[in-house]
């Protein structure tokens, strides 16, 4: 029947766009040792936050807002890398699934949106980020549902998509609430800490005496 192949297209598109985005970002960036290790470290940090604290705190994860703030402080490229690698790394330990590429794209977008905030509202503080994080809680669910919808549901109508989305609504709300709480509690200090290191990384004046 028509639309059968949509599942294939969407899946392949997910894999390839994740790969292409990574590749493209990399080719444009002249990443030095500091940036490479900073990105990797933040990604490992986020992945650990995603996996470990979830259980103790009702599956709320103190992670998405950090990715967002990373983008906000370090710019789109670092934000994207940290975001995209977060699910990839944690899935190395709990198993990759068909959702990995889409998760990578979503998280990468979260990081890039942080950079967009800084670009659009240079004077924004963590309050703006908090609002955005809350929105991302739902948006993330909405994007992640696309794959499931396109592969398993016929016909591909708005109604069917809505139903799939509604099925995951409670999880999305939990995620959004978690983002809100964590960002409100930790956002300010995270921005402070990351800015401190951002400065330390970039200001390397060299003077001869």
């Amino acid at each position: 029947m028509t639309g059968t192949t949509w599942g294939l297209y969407i899946t392949i598109a997910g894999i390839f766009s994740a790969a292409l985005l990574m590749l493209g970002m990399e080719k444009k960036a002249g990443l030095n040792a500091r940036q490479v290790s900073l990105i990797a470290m933040l990604a490992a940090f986020c992945a650990a936050g995603r996996m470990v604290t979830g259980v103790a705190l009702l599956f709320l994860q103190p992670t998405m807002f950090l990715v967002e703030i990373t983008g906000f402080v370090f710019g789109a490229r670092v934000g994207f890398f940290v975001g995209a690698m977060t699910p990839l790394i944690s899935n190395f330990f709990i198993g990759q699934g068909p959702w990995t590429p889409w998760q990578m794209i979503c998280w990468g977008l979260v990081g890039m949106s942080g950079a967009a905030v800084r670009y659009l509202f240079p004077r924004a503080g963590y309050k703006t980020i908090t609002v955005l994080c809350f929105v991302w809680g739902y948006l993330y669910g909405a994007i992640m549902d696309i794959w499931q919808w396109s592969v398993f549901i016929r016909p591909l109508t708005f109604q069917s998509y809505f139903l799939i989305w509604a099925a995951g609504f409670s999880f999305d709300s939990l995620r959004a609430a978690g983002n809100l709480i964590f960002c409100a509690a930790l956002g300010g200090q995270s921005i402070k800490i990351l800015r401190y290191f951002h400065k330390k990384m970039d200001v390397r004046y060299l003077e001869n005496i």
Binding site: L23, V36, I39, A40, M41, A43, A47, F81, M85, I89
Partner: peptide
């Protein structure tokens, strides 16, 4: 990217 993933 591969290096970053490995390191992380």
């Amino acid at each position: 990217s591969a290096l970053m993933v490995a390191l992380a």
